[in-house]
Design a binder for these strands. Structure first.
Length: 564
RNA sequence: GCGCCGGUAGUCUAGUUGGUUAGGAUGUCGGCCUCCCAAGCCGAUGACGCGGGUUCGAAUCCCGCCCGGCGCACCA
């Protein structure tokens, strides 16, 4: 089976705009100040997104005894981004030419012109270098202004901003930090560790260049969970070599040694079952047996050295922990569950892989990042990020806020460790549409082979309207059936009596509606209607009084169309 | 942000030595016809990305901007 996408980015973005799934915000102001990186979900898209969220809730929250959902504000106090490190370390130094107003990255400009490395230099140092070496604007020779910090975060203020003050609000660039600052409250509700806190919501990043349609946006939807798990305080999630090479990690290990007199280096848990981090309670047999496709860090490095394509390994989720490919069981639990989630959305197994992030892609506090990548027509790209963030976030928020976010058990201090899966809804939507998209073959139009759970409409009711004498009777009966289905099934059901029947089937196929119910002349003699399956165009006759039951069974997968 | 390429109805497109009312197809809407897959016939609807300049006259030439694609850079 090939997992080549059925639609290309170009095709799919056009098709989605045409069918009302998603289109650029502010199209009618083209050229008058509309901006890239913002999209509006249309009538089909808002239903699709809702269905993705519902299915995710079902998978990750409803079926879990230990996961709790919150819904935080998107405007957040600035101080939490100081605590998280976002404002402290994630900015680009920009300089603007006073004369021609061109914008440059100060560090890159210096490196290019003077051919020296300026990594880790402060703003003051960079400004000093520019002054000393009399660096001018490469384009017009004009004088360069002061260096500005460009943070990629949208900032605003509540109330009037006095001169010299920093804005006090930040539009969150991720939902995660709102979870960390709610930790204490949810912990008192959850009662004990381990537990997960989930959140679905919008995040905002002022990307320099939004690209590839829905792939990189300035406003986007995330579904995130932070799992809080206690880990033995003397057991560090890094190797001894890592610790020796990194001053921040060395500091951490020194403080543990000072407090407990010993430390154990355990970057990968393997078969060690001593701590909760390697005992995920809901990692059941089904999940243990899920086959994961993993591209390890070593394989990526070796392949690039040898100038060949990197090859993924495939193994059971449980074995990936035992063989020390994944850091611990909680990580394996997340990856297995994500695989099942994405395949239930219609994304083929071999279009999904997990890539271990390279050292330069990983922050210092991370003890293992595995991106779930989907194969798009433009390459393998991240759709879900999985990070073992250790106790970094809670430690930082504890320091800055002064709140008690640790547990004291038998004289030892446990700061919960965090495993974080972070889903990008738009990236998932783009991937699943690319794989559901069909063109040519047996019909002369584009259509969507969406899984029934995702389809915006589960069925359409269509009066055939062929013989003239029956027309009004047919229409009346069709409307009656439509009302009954709506009352009895809770689904969105379409109704259409315009144009000819072929056109109406085509319109439904285009929206991905899996079943079409047609009222014809025979309906009046035996109380049956035809039901047509989108993927095969096949039809069966079923009694009207069983229609809601049959439809529900078909959508829920309790009965197959062939068995009707 | 830099470099290259592009932008005509919802969609695909004709028109670019400057010169009619910007043409076609398809969709959409209305009607006719037809017992089941964008069928056929009639009618309606709808476009030069935005702004400025050159010119008697600009979709066409020039400048700026916006949007999109690719490459570079960025991507907590």
């Amino acid at each position: 089976m090939s997992s080549k996408t059925y639609g290309t980015l170009e095709n799919v973005m056009r098709f989605m705009a045409e069918t009302g799934i998603v289109f650029p915000t502010g199209e009618i102001y083209a050229g008058k100040g509309d901006i890239a990186g913002f999209y509006t979900f249309g009538p089909m898209g808002s239903r699709l997104v809702e269905n993705i969220k519902q299915l995710w809730r079902d998978f990750f929250i409803r079926r879990s005894k230990l996961t709790f959902e919150i819904d935080g504000s998107t405007l957040t106090p600035r101080i939490i981004w100081i605590a998280s490190g976002h404002l402290e370390s994630f900015w680009d130094p920009l300089v603007i030419c006073k004369k021609c107003r061109k914008i440059y990255r100060a560090d890159q400009l210096i490196e290019e012109i003077l051919n020296i490395s300026v990594e880790g230099k402060s703003i003051e140092e960079l400004e000093e270098i520019i002054k000393k070496n009399e660096i001018k604007c490469p384009s017009c020779g004009g004088e360069l202004g002061e260096i500005q910090k460009y943070t990629l975060m949208f900032q605003t203020n509540s109330g009037p901003l006095r001169e010299g003050e920093e804005p006090n609000l930040v539009l969150r660039p991720e939902t995660a930090q709102v979870i960390f600052i709610s930790y204490k409250r949810v912990k008192s509700i959850a009662g004990k560790h381990p537990f997960g806190v989930a959140q679905i919501g919008r995040s905002y990043r002022d990307e320099i260049s939004p690209r590839r349609g829905l792939f990189r946006l300035r406003e986007f939807n995330q579904m995130e969970i932070e799992f809080f798990v206690l880990r033995e305080p003397t057991c560090v999630p890094f190797s001894e070599t890592d610790v020796n090479e990194n001053p921040k990690k060395r500091e951490l290990v020194e403080s543990i040694k000072k407090q407990y007199g010993k430390v154990r280096y355990a970057p990968k848990c393997g078969t060690c079952k001593k701590c909760p981090l390697n005992n995920a309670p809901e990692f059941d047999t089904t999940l243990r047996n899920v086959q994961l496709r993993i591209l390890t860090r070593n394989e990526q490095i070796n392949a690039s050295k040898e100038g060949r394509e990197p090859k993924e390994m495939v193994m059971r989720a449980e074995d990936a922990v035992k063989n020390k490919i994944l850091p611990n069981e909680w990580m394996a639990y997340c990856l297995a569950k994500e695989t099942l989630f994405l395949t239930s959305l219609g994304i083929p197994k071999d279009a999904i892989r997990f890539r271990e992030m390279l050292p330069e892609e990983t922050p210092h506090y991370s003890a293992g990042n595995f991106d779930l990548e989907i194969r798009y027509d433009f390459g393998w790209k991240e759709a879900i990020g999985n990070a073992y963030r250790t106790d970094y976030d809670l430690t930082r928020h504890m320091k800055v806020s002064g709140a008690k976010l640790y547990e004291k058990l038998e004289g030892k201090i446990y700061i919960p460790h965090v495993i974080e899966p972070s889903f990008g809804i738009e990236r998932i939507l783009l991937g699943l549409i690319m794989y559901a998209y069909r063109k040519g073959e047996d019909r002369g139009y584009e259509w969507l082979a969406l899984p029934p759970v995702l389809a915006p409409f589960k069925a359409a009711v269509l009066p055939l309207l062929m013989p003239r004498d029956f027309r009004e009777k047919e229409r009346e009966l069709a409307l009656k059936i439509w009302h009954e289905l709506i009352d009895k099934t809770k689904y969105f059901i379409a109704y259409d009596d315009s144009g000819n029947i072929g056109r109406r089937y085509a319109r439904q196929d285009q929206k991905g509606t899996p079943y079409c119910i047609t009222i014809d002349a025979q309906t009046f003699s035996d109380n049956t209607v035809t039901i047509r399956f989108r993927d095969t165009k096949e039809q069966k006759r079923v009694p009207i009084d069983q229609l809601d039951k049959i439809l529900t069974d078909l959508i829920e997968g309790k009965r197959s169309f062939n068995d009707l």
